[in-house]
Simulated assay, not measured.
Amino acid sequence: MPDLFYAITQAHSCGSVVIIDGAQGIAHCHMNVLELHVDFYVFFIYQFSGTIGIGVLDDAEERLS
């Protein structure tokens, strides 16, 4: 797995918002989005249950305010 913490830290230092597309990794990789300080994490449910068209967008709480 790439060093996501380093990449996210560099992106945030430039003022960028970080969005991780977890579509391929959600079923295979454990990722703590709180430790990584990800702004948004996106994935679809079909990795777990077939062809159901449901997606998930997890966002950092401070992005909502």
Rank of each mutant, 00 (worst) to 15 (best):
M1R: 05
V33F: 15
D3P: 06
T51H: 14
F43Y: 12
Q10W: 05
Y41D: 07
M31F: 12
F5Q: 15
A27W: 13
G25Y: 09
D39Y: 03
A27G: 14
V38N: 05
V56T: 10
I26Q: 00
Y46Q: 00
L4M: 15
S65Y: 08
F5M: 14
V56K: 07
H30P: 07
F40V: 05
A27P: 06
Y41A: 09
A7D: 05
S49H: 02
E61V: 11
E35N: 12
Q24S: 13
V42E: 04
D58C: 06
D39L: 00
Y46H: 04
M1N: 06
S65P: 05
V18P: 01
F43A: 01
E61Q: 11
A60S: 01
V18I: 09
F44M: 08
T9C: 10
L4H: 03
A7I: 15
V38M: 06
C14K: 11
I52W: 04
N32H: 02
F44D: 01
L4T: 08
L36H: 00
S13I: 07
D3L: 12
I8E: 02
V42G: 06
F40N: 00
I8N: 02
A11P: 10
G50D: 13
S16M: 11
G53Q: 07
A7Y: 13
G55H: 00
I45P: 01
S13P: 08
T51C: 07
F5Y: 15
I54E: 01
H30Y: 11
G55E: 03
L36Q: 05
L4D: 09
V33C: 12
G15L: 13
E61P: 13
S49Q: 03
I19R: 05
Y46D: 03
N32G: 03
S65Q: 10
H37C: 08
I45Q: 12
S65I: 04
G50F: 12
N32W: 00
I45N: 08
I54G: 02
L36K: 00
C14V: 04
D3Y: 13
E62Q: 14
H28L: 08
I52H: 07
E35A: 09
A27I: 10
V38L: 13
A7K: 14
L34F: 14
G50T: 13
Y41K: 08
S49G: 04
M31K: 10
Y6P: 03
T51F: 06
I19P: 03
N32L: 02
F44H: 07
I8H: 04
H12V: 07
E61C: 14
S65T: 10
C14N: 09
A60K: 05
I54L: 02
A27H: 14
D21N: 15
G22V: 05
